[in-house]
Amino acid sequence: MKRRDLLKTAAALPVLASAQQNPVLPRPTAARKEEDPRLDSETSDAIADPIPSFFTAKQFAALEKLCDTMLPRVGETPGALDTRVPEFLDFLISRSGADQQKLYRDGLNHALDLAPLSEPWTYEEPRDPYAKFLQQAKHDILTAAVNSREWIAAVAKRNPAVTGTGTYWLPVE
């Protein structure tokens, strides 16, 4: 059962009603062809809050500000904060290489100034590390937001072709 359905059901019932019902015990039945069980499940992100651990509180606050400036909520379309991009990037950068970690830490220690992103884009990597950080952060923030459950749900309302579904290959033995 999806989380929302569960919440709806729960809201409709008196709090103790479900506790008073006894579980339904199976009755003996004649043997028949049994199907393999297939259980619905939910992702952890849908039912719990991530615990950021990599950036300092000050850096994380700067990341939240950067995310909100880079991709604010616009009307029905969620922004970077609605899609928990700061928490996700805290996790992603915690697993990234030392270069990337330094780029982010130094970038977040810098006073927020998005002016370098108004310079015309060129293929040359910016010399200024802060400008380089902003370009990387722009990519990461937009990608993490666009691939989030909330963003895909919002876009799917306008364009049902957008589902966020891909073909995943499991480890091959």
Binding site: D45, S96, A144, R149, I152, W169, L170
Partner: peptide, 19 residues
């Protein structure tokens, strides 16, 4: 070996495990 999945169900939201 293959199954449909939502990009947000992947551990790295489609960005892949760094490195």
């Amino acid at each position: 070996d293959r199954t449909p999945k939502k990009v947000y169900e992947l551990p790295y939201r489609g960005l892949g495990r760094p490195g």
